[in-house]
Simulated assay, not measured.
Amino acid sequence: MTTLLFNKPYGVLSQFTPEVASRWRCLAEFINVPGVYAAGRLDADSEGLLLLTDQGRLQQRLTDPRFGHWRSYWVQVEGHPDDDQLQRLREGVEIQRQRTLPARAHCLQGKEIPLLPERDPPIRVRATIPTSWLELSLREGRNRQVRRMTAAVGLPTLRLIRCRIDLMDGGDAFDLNDLPAGRWRSVTSAEQERLNRLLSSRAPRPHRTSREADRRG
């Protein structure tokens, strides 16, 4: 089994084939490993952790919405969230005529704010409106869900970075750590053991899911 972790930069599609007349780059510009495919997706204008594998069963397990794997995101938003906005995100909001599942939402402050290089291209900044960082965790993957959720509570997303993929409840997870944007690495033997435990575990009780099976930021 070949499994890779990749820190996807802004402007890169989660696929190896470029789209005709698209301004976005593709994974083939960064990863020269045959036979691997993304287990889940990030939109081209999202950044962060992407897991790639050549094993169909692992890809299916990580993207099947029945398993409800938590995905965590650092989200830079326009404005400063109040308690009511955070609570609405946690309880679920209605987007595209469907209510989202309960989420985890936390406003990052001080040393909690990730130290990240400036995005290329830079985010839109308005001098009169502050920006804030949230950590938002979801266990479903509707189209552009994070952006739609923050917009629904009055906090437009300016930058979106997936920082963590939980494999099972109880601590097994992958995160970005110090993997630079645009770089990939193979999983370690210990991380492979985590994936083996995931594949041998029994399916949990199904969660209510979205209409889409992939997981997009």
Rank of each mutant, 00 (worst) to 15 (best):
L50I: 05
P9E: 06
L4F: 05
R197I: 03
C163T: 15
E94I: 15
I113L: 06
L198I: 10
E19P: 01
G48W: 04
G92K: 05
L5C: 03
I161T: 04
V93S: 09
N196E: 13
T3Y: 02
E193N: 04
Q145F: 08
N177F: 02
P156R: 03
S137N: 05
P81M: 08
E135C: 13
L89T: 10
D169F: 02
G182E: 11
S132T: 04
Q60L: 12
F67V: 00
K111F: 02
L13F: 03
A152P: 06
Q98D: 10
I129W: 01
D83Y: 01
F174P: 12
L50Y: 03
S189Y: 03
R148A: 11
N143M: 07
R142Q: 13
A181F: 15
I95S: 12
I95M: 12
C163D: 14
G92Y: 10
Q96W: 13
D84W: 07
G141F: 11
G35I: 05
G217Q: 11
R147H: 12
L134N: 07
T209K: 14
G170N: 03
T150R: 01
R183W: 04
R208L: 14
L160N: 09
R97V: 02
P114N: 13
M149E: 14
N32Q: 15
E94D: 10
L49D: 09
N7T: 04
P122W: 08
V146Q: 11
G11L: 06
A38I: 04
D82G: 15
L42G: 02
L50N: 05
L13M: 13
V75K: 04
N32M: 01
N196A: 08
C107I: 02
P206W: 05
C107W: 11
I123D: 03
D43K: 09
S189H: 07
P180N: 07
R208C: 10
V153Q: 06
L116R: 11
E112P: 01
R104F: 11
G110E: 09
E140C: 06
E191F: 05
V77W: 10
E94T: 13
M1E: 08
V93L: 08
V146P: 00
L195D: 02
R197Y: 01
H106S: 01
Y37K: 14
A28Q: 13
R159A: 06
D175E: 15
K8L: 08
A190E: 15
R164L: 09
R194D: 06
P130G: 02
M1K: 04
E212S: 14
L86I: 14
Q76V: 00
W70D: 13
L4K: 09
D84N: 13
A39V: 02
P34V: 04
T63C: 05
C107P: 00
V77I: 05
L5Y: 02
R126V: 03
I129E: 00
W133E: 10
R194N: 06
L176R: 01
